[in-house]
Design a protein around this nucleic acid. Structure first.
Lengths: 236, 236
DNA sequence: TTGACAAAGATTGTTAACAATGCAGTATCC
DNA sequence: GGATACTGCATTGTTAACAATCTTTGTCAA
């Protein structure tokens, strides 16, 4: 509900770039931009109606967050995380989000509870209409919403970055992409928090994240395919 | 010992920028660059012998990590965290680093233990020679070293960012800057980890971080001073 | 037909000049 | 004397042209 990012009072020149970054961010979280998609500067310039400088700055920011990969003299591509990177992202999430829900089980504001429950209702609504894009977006955003309950923009930023990268990972390695975030698990996490049971909250979030991670096939060679295509075209 | 950042194989154009970023990063961690220090483009260009574009890209990266603040048409300044931001950084660290040491208490490699103990020895050596710069640097780096034990570059990156911001915070709000990271507390954390006692490890790291945080005066108006000076010069 | 080589086109990387903004110092007016 | 307005300087922001690299296409020969 309340977007906790408004440190733009001193930095108004970033507004354009931030818009581009946010749009690409959202597109990735909705899995509308698949890994390895080329982001040509000219296309982005026309799309957003800005100069090339802004686009390049936005791409640099995205690359510093692991959402985009910059290849010298070849351009920008939606990142294509390796299985190792995927492993690391989920390990980091496991560690950080465990702490998040544990603390929330100790103390959470009424507003926070309300926001979380409202969010789950939105997820249900999206599921009822079978709006796949919205389902995917909300599934990821739920974890950001958990972080937001701490009213800590630093923490929220970290989680948002990890969740976005997770979207890429799911897009790459997901077998059954609909099972990425089962509905009832989110609700269970909330109930564990509300009932003030840190142990249960921990177990729930861990179970949930492992569930998502286990729905991936991190051993496969799916990543190789696009690279291979390019190699076959250009080199051999 | 082993720097876990080597994803530069595909991105060799970043090398120059990354050098600038790292140098400023280090200077901040050693508290050689105080908050609100102006970083003029020309100075940086001459210092690093690169074009203005590289400098501006580096500054953008630093600003995205909260190390530098970009003010429109005025330039780049070493960030001047507000008390609220300081609070958030330490809350985030408390949460994340608690998870880090807890997991390490469950499982840690021999190499990790060795790296940590070696690090503490280096701290002692620096203290023996009274090398204040090195003491400050190593004190912060210890926490990064803890993260590194997980062999997770994502996690390490998050911690490094938070630790660097902490350096700025200590520089701004620290009363007694020498007490920023007492020697024995680092050793205690290691011993708790090695003895496989998660509970004790948690308590140690939390005690340590709260100790650092409590050595700050987050209520003071120290931050206002530099701004005030500029306001007085320019406006009133 | 296939392979390599070469040229054309497209895209990115870099530089430099220009525009805009802020800052400081000075003069003027009250 | 103090405050305000103005002018010149320095710094940042933007744009456009140029250089370098990669990709593609076409040709030729085996």
């Amino acid at each position: 509900m309340t977007d906790a990012r408004q440190k733009l009072d001193t930095v108004q020149s970033d507004s354009d770039e931030q818009l581009i970054v946010d749009r690409i961010y959202s597109a990735v979280m909705e899995q509308k931009l698949a890994p390895n998609t080329k982001l040509s500067e000219q296309t982005l310039c026309e799309t957003f109606g800005v100069g090339r400088m802004r686009v390049r700055r936005a791409l640099l920011l995205l690359s510093s967050q692991g959402i985009v990969e910059l290849h010298s003299n070849r351009g920008a591509f939606i990142a294509c995380p390796s299985p190792d990177e995927a492993q690391e992202v989920f390990e980091a999430r496991l560690m950080i989000e465990t702490g998040i829900v544990r603390e929330l089980a100790h103390e959470i504001s009424e507003a926070g509870i309300h926001a979380l429950r409202t969010h789950v209702k939105e997820e249900d609504a999206a599921r009822a209409v079978n709006d796949r894009t919205e389902i995917i977006r909300l599934s990821g955003e739920f974890h950001v919403e958990l972080a937001k309950c701490h009213n800590n923009s630093v923490l929220t930023r970290v989680v948002r970055e990890l969740v976005t990268r997770s979207s890429l990972i799911v897009a790459l390695f997901g077998i059954n992409k609909d099972s990425s975030c089962p509905d009832d698990e989110h609700a269970s996490i909330i109930e564990a928090i509300v009932s003030g049971d840190p142990q249960s909250a921990e177990e729930n979030i861990q179970h949930h994240l492992l569930h998502v991670k286990n729905s991936l096939d991190l051993e496969q060679t799916q990543k190789v395919e696009p690279d291979l295509a390019k190699i076959l075209n250009g080199r051999m």
